[in-house]
């Protein structure tokens, strides 16, 4: 019985990653290259294509992994011109957010930018590498100004202030950087809680966990509009407050 279950996990995993791989190749030749060559607003078009690609991926997930229920708050899809702050529990988190937000950008580990095709895709999508050379000096101001324009045009920036995935689902420390970026752009913050993605795709595992009944939930726990001009404003305090809201939401959900 266990072998059949493992086999199911393996087959579904291979199907999903096959879509990811071959779908990316098809998107590359049929959509990304024409967009690269002919689109008037390449960044925006690339973001929309990635949104479409990931949307198809999660439609397949829903069709193949019937025991996983998706509960996506409608308001999440309607977020615009905001800095979205999320907890991070699985590799699925960023691609799930891309599948919900048509105009999105984020800060990505710089090593991903060196991967052939993927790096090209990230750069043309207006994503920002977290490498010191991009986040220091004049390059940082250029990146921040691009984020500001992106937000002003209705796009969103999503960031995981924990920096990396939590291995045990518990929140780790929040880096204040994203809050300074929000202040620079004078943007509102949407605190979005992700749950259950680590049940479907566990950190450290290659296989999707398709056998367990699980629930993936995405919801806004708080919308913050800080008074950035206030004498008392502090990015570090805002980071601590935001983390406390997440702690509270996680513990309330655990009590249910």
């Amino acid at each position: 019985m266990k072998i059949i279950q493992r086999l199911t996990d393996l087959v579904i995993t291979l199907l999903l990653w096959s879509y990811f791989l071959f779908g990316s190749v098809a998107f590359f030749f049929l959509l990304y290259i024409p967009a690269y060559l002919f689109s008037k607003d390449r960044v925006r078009t690339f973001q929309k294509l990635s949104y479409l690609h990931m949307k198809i991926f999660f439609t397949l997930v829903r069709l193949l992994v019937l025991r996983t229920k998706f509960v996506i708050q409608e308001e999440v899809r309607a977020i615009r011109s905001s800095v979205i702050v999320c907890n991070h529990i699985s590799y699925l988190d960023p691609i799930l957010l891309i599948s919900l937000l048509p105009q999105q950008c984020t800060i990505v580990k710089s090593t991903f930018f060196t991967v052939p095709f993927f790096g090209w895709l990230l750069r043309n999508s207006g994503y920002i590498p977290s490498t010191p050379s991009e986040m220091t000096g004049p390059a940082m101001i250029k990146n921040l100004e691009n984020i500001k324009k992106h937000l002003a045009s209705g796009g969103n920036l999503f960031v995981f202030p924990e920096g990396t995935r939590s291995r045990n689902g518990k929140l780790t420390e929040f880096n204040k950087g994203v809050f300074s970026i929000a202040r620079y752009c004078a943007a509102p913050l949407q605190l979005v809680l992700l749950q259950g993605t680590n049940d479907l795709f566990r950190p450290g595992s290659f296989l999707f966990g398709t056998r367990n009944f699980s629930r993936i939930e995405v919801k806004i726990i708080r919308c913050l509009k800080p008074d950035y001009a206030s004498e008392n404003f502090s990015a570090a305090v805002l980071a601590d407050q935001s983390r406390a809201f997440f702690e509270d939401a996680v513990s309330r959900d655990a009590d249910r």
């Binding site: 000096g137 940082m140 300074s180 970026i181 620079y184």
Partner: peptide
């Protein structure tokens, strides 16, 4: 003092 601190400093200078 890192680049994010530099951004905070710039915003304080503006203020």
């Amino acid at each position: 003092f890192d680049s994010i601190d530099a951004i905070e400093l710039l915003l304080e200078i503006e203020k």
